[in-house]
Design a protein around this nucleic acid. Structure first.
Lengths: 341, 341
DNA sequence: ATTAGCATTTCAAACGTTTGCGGAACTATA
DNA sequence: TATAGTTCCGCAAACGTTTGAAATGCTAAT
């Protein structure tokens, strides 16, 4: 019909009125007569006029785009969160722009710059494992752009956050292992510069204390990837006092731990019970299925977007909030031991 | 320093020159003297001026945004593709906007509308399992927006495509099963309205023919989800003539098939060899690890973006191309049978 | 007949950038 | 001393939309 898209000008020309009249008619402005409004609406309908978001953005200074930075997309937990972000954002009239940092500090910094120069209305971040300098996040705030952290947060930046109750989740996981009779529980821990790594370890320690089990530093081992598990777990199984329970900081590590245990000639859960953290699809796929702590990633995504949009639209002016999503211990095959109650 | 962002006007005012001079200086226009250029560049540097993409879009009619529609994000193959899309798009100066259709036709239509009204420069789509009407894709083309299909394509729409060589991949998988001695291979097939479902079945059939094995329609069963596998596979194992090989249309189905086989008291791969399609992370996690056909999702993503950007930037005007990405049979634990050569 | 009041519409500026054209100031040639 | 050429810069319009202010045409009251 026209080159590209129908504009408000085309409508105006056709109807022999001015663009401003059309604009006001569409907004239901009381200045405009009913008959004019009707004819504008009719033509809009007929020509499938859609306002140009770019012109709107230029006027309003808002893009209706939310930027998201995640360490990886190819990752069950993060893709679940993204799914939640996407769903609520679209329902609220926002679009979503993704960047993955690939667990690299440089790429994270670049992603921030990219999103800022795209003039997004707000930014959602889960930081990389290696980030220890947070100035790029400060820059976001200096630009007046709302910022919400989820899951992997930084405690140095004062902003809204959505986190999982990692400490309680870990406590519950270890409590479960103790309940089914484990006496020598090892924790495969995440990086301690990250809040989640620290909290999960804290929960582990608190559970042992609470149930009067000895805390052995040798039982807290830094190991949060499959590659590390491949090395660490066989050594564990060679110990004089073999572990009878393993609480891993994430599912992938837990799964590899299970595989290593089996390779060393032991059985899961009969000889060693294993519990992971995330409870995604992979926990259903393994043999045995993996007991794990469900993090409700989809919900985390939704809550994070909700917080962010509230800030963008200045629905309130409260100090920074932190929303804690409850975890849930999901018992599956890797910890239903014969020793269970 | 200024409200929000530094604009070309701020620079102009500070330097006592006009905005157009600043613009031309930044573009290296020969009209502008070296000294002016230098002072502009200095101030740009000092004030961290970044051109406003929105104003640029309004002028050029281009957004430098690519829209992507995938059935699901929480899915190993698709998140791999997305990862490839993201990487190359950003390197080429484009941003990426995602929509997931959640395998729903209505959501797919809505996603198309959303992206069109966002004025994206091009769209990448992998269609849902249930889409049989393709008019929403025609609308994209009518708007003059380049469109590239990947993996799950529609043959009704004439456009660029990036697909996996499903037929050959399936042929290779079945060839492998035959090579290790399988005589009664079942195919758990995908929906036949989808090209990939059809091609993989075709490859299965061709391989049997090629190696002079009988083709039995009872051995081609529609089953492409874990839920279906849970029902279908136990029935298979009760057959008089038990299958000794299973070629599943995707990994998740293959994994569930393995689990069912084990639940029925048989062993993988000793009694039944299993081969899947996708070869993602999950194929390493299961016990035994799953032999599967690698699809190179990351590469698919990159190729699709490359095709799209070529169209957007009108680098050529060739008729629609179809790029075929070679698959690769990855032999792991679920098919290294004792009968193997 | 003048004016106030009202309903309806248009004008013009703005958002930040680009770009063809015209113009000023200068130098060089005839 | 004109004239032509060169170098450098600003003007204004354009992209599509919004919005306060100004203008138009009308009716009704004085």
């Amino acid at each position: 019909m026209f080159k590209g898209q129908v504009t408000i000008k085309d409508i105006a020309k056709e109807l022999g009125i001015s663009p401003s009249t059309v604009s006001k008619a569409l907004k239901g402005h009381r200045d405009i007569s009913l008959s004019t409004k009707q004819s504008v609406r009719d033509l809009v309908e007929k020509w499938h006029y859609k306002p140009d978001p770019i012109a709107l953005s230029l006027k309003s200074g808002l893009t209706k785009i939310i930027g998201v930075i995640v360490p990886e997309i190819v990752h069950y937990f993060f893709s679940t969160v993204i799914s939640g972000i996407e769903d609520l954002a679209y329902d609220s009239g926002y679009h979503v722009m993704f960047c993955q940092s690939n667990e690299s500090y440089e790429r994270e910094v670049k992603a921030v710059e990219t999103l800022l120069s795209s003039r997004v209305d707000g930014i959602l971040v889960s930081v990389t494992k290696v980030t220890s300098d947070f100035n790029h996040f400060r820059k976001i705030q200096e630009n007046g752009i709302p910022l919400v952290f989820f899951d992997r947060i930084s405690s140095e930046i004062d902003t809204d956050r959505v986190v999982v109750d990692d400490e309680v989740g870990a406590f519950d996981a270890v409590k479960h292992l103790i309940n089914i009779g484990c006496k020598n529980i090892v924790h495969l821990a995440g990086p301690q510069n990250l809040q989640i790594g620290k909290s999960r370890k804290d929960g582990y320690v608190r559970a042992l204390k609470y149930f009067n089990q000895p805390i052995n530093n040798q039982n807290i081992i830094s190991c949060d990837t499959r590659e590390e598990a491949r090395i660490v777990v066989p050594e564990l199984m060679k110990r004089e006092k073999r572990p009878d329970g393993i609480f891993a900081v994430n599912d992938l590590t837990a799964v590899e731990a299970m595989n290593m245990i089996k390779e060393c000639g032991f059985k899961v859960p009969e000889d060693v019970s294993v519990v992971g953290f995330t409870s995604g699809m992979i926990s259903d796929i393994t043999t045995p299925t993996l007991s794990s702590v469900e993090q409700h990633g989809y919900l985390i995504g939704r809550e994070a977007v909700k917080l962010l949009i509230d800030r963008i639209e200045k629905k309130h002016n409260l100090p920074s909030q932190t929303i804690v999503i409850k975890t849930e211990m999901v018992v599956k095959g890797s910890s239903k031991s014969a020793r269970s109650i």
